[in-house]
């Protein structure tokens, strides 16, 4: 069921494109991280030809094979892909929620979204804020082990991102409108 929901989301071009873009951006930032100043200097320099402004940053991406251990390479690639997935699924979820606002009335829809964000008294919606935070923490672990230390955070990052994706898909399958319990 969850796999069906998951594949259904990525059959839509908009979300597949978002996944790809976020993955490429996160991967590039992670690989460039130590040399972002060189990349920026090259891009903004008026003396460097346009072709070099493109080819130099691209050539620095090659450091994935020279400046990372095998474990770090795997984590950087996995975390980039998983963070892209997590962002695309979260955007899909929010898109659907905003459509609910139009269909079910502003007040109920907004309360549902806010409640799902903070997960206060709304067990059905699940903690979107927490799952989003999880994915961000998972993705930030990509920086923790650069260049040499703390590779153990890579596996935690991967686990958190997978958890985040699973929980967001679960939220998508759950009732789309929350009814808050009155005490």
């Amino acid at each position: 069921m969850k796999l069906k929901t998951f594949t259904g989301i990525f059959r839509k071009f908009k979300y597949s494109a978002l996944w790809l873009i976020v993955t490429v951006v996160v991967f590039s930032i992670a690989v460039w991280w130590q040399n972002l100043s060189v990349i920026f200097n090259v891009i903004k320099s008026p003396h460097i030809p346009l072709i070099s402004k493109i080819s130099i940053p691209l050539s620095f991406l090659g450091s994935i094979s020279t400046n990372f251990t095998l474990e770090a390479e795997i984590y950087v690639i996995l975390i980039s892909i998983l963070f892209g997935l997590s962002v695309a699924i979260t955007v899909y979820y929010l898109d659907r929620r905003f459509r609910e606002i139009k269909n079910h009335g502003i007040t109920l829809g907004l309360i549902g979204i806010i409640a799902s964000l903070f997960s206060l008294g709304c067990a059905a919606c699940g903690p979107l804020l927490i799952t989003t935070l999880l994915s961000l923490v998972g993705a930030s672990s990509i920086l923790a082990f650069l260049p040499l230390k703390g590779q153990e955070f890579g596996i935690i990052g991967v686990i958190l991102l997978v958890l985040s994706i699973y929980l967001t898909v679960k939220q998508i399958e759950d009732p789309t409108v929350c009814r808050l319990k009155r005490k």
């Binding site: 903690p127 927490i130 923790a144």
Partner: peptide, 26 residues
């Protein structure tokens, strides 16, 4: 379901705290 959700939040917050502290340390 609600209990599971609360437990998950506690675990997630603890994990987050551990990762942030460890990241800053390293």
């Amino acid at each position: 379901n609600k209990n599971n959700s609360t437990s998950f939040q506690v675990i997630a917050i603890l994990l987050t705290a551990v990762i942030i502290i460890a990241t800053v340390y390293f």
